[in-house]
Simulated scan of single mutants.
Amino acid sequence: MPIQFLDSRMSLNNTFSLGTAILTSTPTLLGDIGLQTVAAIGTPNESDVRILLWGTVGVSRSSTNLVNIYVERGGTGIFGSGELIFNSTIDLTSGPGTRLFTFTAGDFPPVSNVITGQIRYTMYVASATETPVTIVGPVSFNGSAQAGTS
């Protein structure tokens, strides 16, 4: 079947370069989208759904730290309740400053997820060490769903 557009969504947590939220070692939910797959249900495309996800996270730190970005499929909005499909660990070099991280991830969800009509994706961010890391923004999480093979 030809390529079929299914859905596109975005989650904007913070659109400006300012903020005061402090990251901890417990992953913080910063992005949450539900991508519709209804149009592929019952068609030959049902088993050829693919998801493209991308996001941006701006942080500020005073010294060396590690920041982890996680993306899960499914789940309840609590880290670990879904299936981890993406993880990136970013090493913040020493010294004060602000960094802007961007990432792209892909997913080929199983048919069992597609036939529910909507697949939830969540983005979490955590700090790996005790040195404070502040979420300053911008923070966004976006996704699109397509189906088909040609």
Rank of each mutant, 00 (worst) to 15 (best):
M1P: 10
P2C: 12
I3V: 12
I3H: 15
Q4T: 11
L6E: 03
D7H: 02
S8K: 08
R9D: 06
S11V: 00
S11P: 00
L12D: 09
L12P: 00
L12N: 10
N14P: 00
N14A: 02
T15N: 15
T15H: 14
F16L: 13
S17V: 12
S17K: 06
S17T: 11
L18M: 12
G19I: 06
A21G: 04
A21R: 12
I22V: 14
T24C: 00
S25H: 14
S25R: 12
S25N: 15
T26N: 10
T26G: 04
T26M: 09
T28K: 10
T28C: 03
L29E: 02
L30Y: 08
L30H: 03
D32W: 03
D32R: 02
I33G: 03
G34W: 07
L35A: 13
Q36C: 11
Q36N: 14
T37V: 12
V38Q: 12
V38H: 10
A40V: 06
A40M: 10
V49R: 09
V49F: 10
R50D: 03
I51R: 13
L53C: 05
G55S: 04
V57N: 01
V57D: 03
G58D: 02
S60K: 09
S60C: 04
R61I: 03
L66G: 14
L66H: 15
N68P: 00
Y70S: 03
Y70R: 03
Y70A: 07
V71I: 04
V71M: 01
E72A: 05
G75I: 08
G75P: 00
G75A: 02
G77T: 08
F79T: 01
F79S: 01
F79L: 01
G80R: 06
S81E: 01
G82Q: 11
L84E: 11
L84T: 13
I85M: 06
F86S: 08
F86I: 08
N87S: 11
N87I: 08
S88L: 09
T89E: 12
I90P: 02
I90R: 14
D91M: 05
L92R: 05
S94G: 14
G95F: 11
G95Q: 07
P96K: 10
P96A: 15
G97E: 07
G97I: 02
T98F: 02
T98M: 01
L100P: 01
F101R: 00
T102I: 00
T102F: 01
T102S: 07
F103M: 08
F103H: 10
F103T: 06
A105G: 06
D107V: 00
D107Y: 06
F108Y: 13
F108D: 04
P109D: 04
P110V: 09
V111I: 13
V111T: 13
S112R: 14
N113E: 15
T116A: 11
T116M: 09
Q118C: 02
I119K: 11
R120L: 04
R120D: 07
M123N: 05
M123Q: 09
V125D: 01
V125M: 04
A126Q: 06
S127K: 13
S127N: 15
A128R: 09
A128N: 07
A128H: 01
A128L: 10
V133W: 06
I135T: 01
V136G: 00
P138A: 09
P138M: 05
N142T: 07
G143A: 06
G143Y: 05
G143M: 01
G143S: 08
S144K: 14
A145D: 12
A147D: 12
T149E: 15
T149G: 10
T149Q: 14
S150D: 15
